[in-house]
Design a protein around this nucleic acid. Structure first.
Lengths: 347, 347
DNA sequence: AAAATCAACGTTAGCGCTAACGCTGCCTCG
DNA sequence: CGAGGCAGCGTTAGCGCTAACGTTGATTTT
């Protein structure tokens, strides 16, 4: 009648005839074991169906193999796509990922980060670069490998990989101006919720301001489902007094599509009477009856690059602090050259 | 110059003047500490900014506060919605969730479960009821709290919460027959990939068979984006030789919408010439120009119920082994009563 | 009033693993 | 040929916490 139910490295050591330290070294792949002995130990571990106790390993080494990943929401094509890009790299490097959704709440994010630190997390991935200041300081002083993803800045907590949202907004703005649109509007979520969207809006606004268009109507909707939010926001926007916008940009493609469906229902000619532009260039666009003009962002590549850099960083390598990935304007059927002078005025 | 960088329960004990065991008890909320002393310890822990070391706790108690959640994919509205339902309950109960996506690969799921066991996971959540047999046996022998969610059966590994997919398929079938449709088709992903979808198809088929319709064309597409898959599948389906189907059911609403857009492009009158039906009753439907006939599933409630039961189960309570949540047929604009006799023949 | 009970703490012994040294014998090299 | 170097292994001492028993003094029971 055996006492122990699980086999530990001590058991393997006894079976092979070495100390548990040698087994530990062999299993972890650190040096100090002859190739022959290592093979023998690995074989025995396999035979005995050894399973490492990760909590014990974490406690003894003061470092776990957990990576905490914080994202605002799962209800978006952005974060699942980024996550998907990171998954393979991370799991292949032997890490387990603890995912948290913050609903765009900084306080919740900070609290969750503390919890991950209680786990001796090997690294952290945070969405965007806008975080609670105390958390930033804490992470920095702890020197824990931290990847900020999706947005970039010159002074990340540790490292970052993303796109320049302001520049992307400007790029879209230049395109819309080149088309001849002059009365832009923007449909988004409540201010401060999605800070990347706010930056894109700022870029768009700056671009139009350069061309002498200072006015920009912004409609903000608080609905979770993006299709619905886009539709509701567009309806509200079109009901407003004053001149009707001639082009509407949206937080993302899903919302743009919601807006497009409203325009069609109201028999508003798109893109002649009103242009529609989205953001993110989702696969959605490839099947829609009319592809939406959008800005393509390399989400999956962002995940891959980010994960690679984070892993390298955790292995002590020196990596680029900030990586900016390019975005690309993708013209669809929802914008076109309209009546007004097509040449942009400013530089 | 202080040596220790982190404060442990020993430090709190010293500060308050009690043993570390009393501190441990006070912090965990177990009995054996006077209310006054407990308050004092809690206050001191707050003051000293104590943070529990979760790896040490897990090692000593042979049980961690990690819950492993395995889902096939994040690219679906189903699993994020279920996850969202579970999140609050689980985090409120003090658990951290490790999420893994399996891409409908049983082997990968089994390997990942083993890894979670290496973490002394407090519990597991698996999607569906179809798993690697060895894994089932292993989990059962370990007696680890396991929730199977989204699909149900009489003999779950431990407990399950979900809907009856076969019955849902039958319900949809009865409705389509009542409408008068007689040449049904189904667009789905490759067989065996999404086993719930296969069950819905089986239910649909059984229902039509009862009414004397044995033939059912099934088109299977292997594309990740559901919109695209629906569109591509529908195109392929309509190009087939033989009589054209008079109603097409899809794996989910997104695919149905992709199919609908193809029909519109081909100027096929929906729902007169061809009916369209989806599955899941997503919020998407509330904004589409034409709502799709679908089957509503209580995804969020499923997550909430599942999480509650799992937590209760982990606390040693006795809970229902199997909970079946109701589905509801939601009629949209994409099906209607057509020419043929509208009365269903069978019972 | 002696015994039994019990709340409220303390002591001891690990959980399974790893970091940091120690030790050995063989090889190299001036 | 002896000192030094080094690969290859062993020993020791915890990591921070908790389970399982003590221990003590006060309260209750018969």
């Amino acid at each position: 009648m055996t006492r122990k139910i699980t086999v530990g490295i001590k058991d393997i050591g006894r079976a092979v005839g070495v100390s548990m330290m040698t087994v530990s070294r062999a299993l972890r792949g650190v040096e100090g074991v002859s190739p022959a002995m290592r093979a023998e130990i690995l074989r025995m571990a396999e035979v005995m169906d050894y399973r490492p106790n990760r909590t014990a390993r974490s406690l003894a080494s003061a470092r776990s193999s957990l990576i905490g990943i914080s994202i605002p929401t799962l209800f978006s094509d952005v974060f699942p796509e980024i996550l998907d890009g990171m998954r393979a790299t991370l799991s292949h490097a032997g890490f387990d990922t603890v995912i948290d959704t913050t609903d765009y709440d900084r306080t919740r994010e900070a609290a969750w980060v503390e919890r991950m630190l209680d786990w001796n997390a090997a690294g952290l991935v945070l969405s965007g670069i806008d975080h609670a200041p105390e958390m930033r300081d804490h992470l920095r002083s702890l020197q824990i490998p931290t990847l900020e993803i999706w947005d970039v800045c010159d002074d990340p907590i540790d490292i970052c990989v993303g796109v320049d949202h302001h520049a992307a907004g400007e790029m879209l703005g230049r395109h819309l101006q080149a088309c001849g649109y002059r009365r832009p509007a923007f449909v988004s979520v409540p201010e401060g919720r999605d800070r990347r969207a706010d930056k894109r809006l700022a870029g768009l606004r700056a671009s139009f301001a350069t061309a002498g268009v200072a006015e920009m109507v912004v409609e903000r909707v608080d609905r979770r489902a993006a299709f619905v939010a886009g539709a509701v926001g567009t309806e509200a926007l079109l009901k407003r007094p004053g001149p009707r916008p001639d082009v509407i940009a949206y937080l993302n493609d899903h919302m743009a599509f919601g807006g497009l469906s409203v325009c069609e229902r109201l028999a508003l000619p798109v893109p002649q009477a009103v242009g529609i532009a989205g953001f993110n260039g989702l696969e959605l666009n490839t099947v829609l009856p009319r592809p939406i003009t959008t800005v393509r962002t390399p989400l999956n590549a962002m995940g891959v690059t980010g994960a690679r850099n984070l892993v390298a960083r955790m292995n002590g390598a020196v990596v680029a602090r900030s990586i900016v990935l390019p975005t690309r304007l993708q013209e669809g059927d929802t914008t076109c050259v309209v009546g007004v002078s097509a040449a942009p005025q400013g530089e």
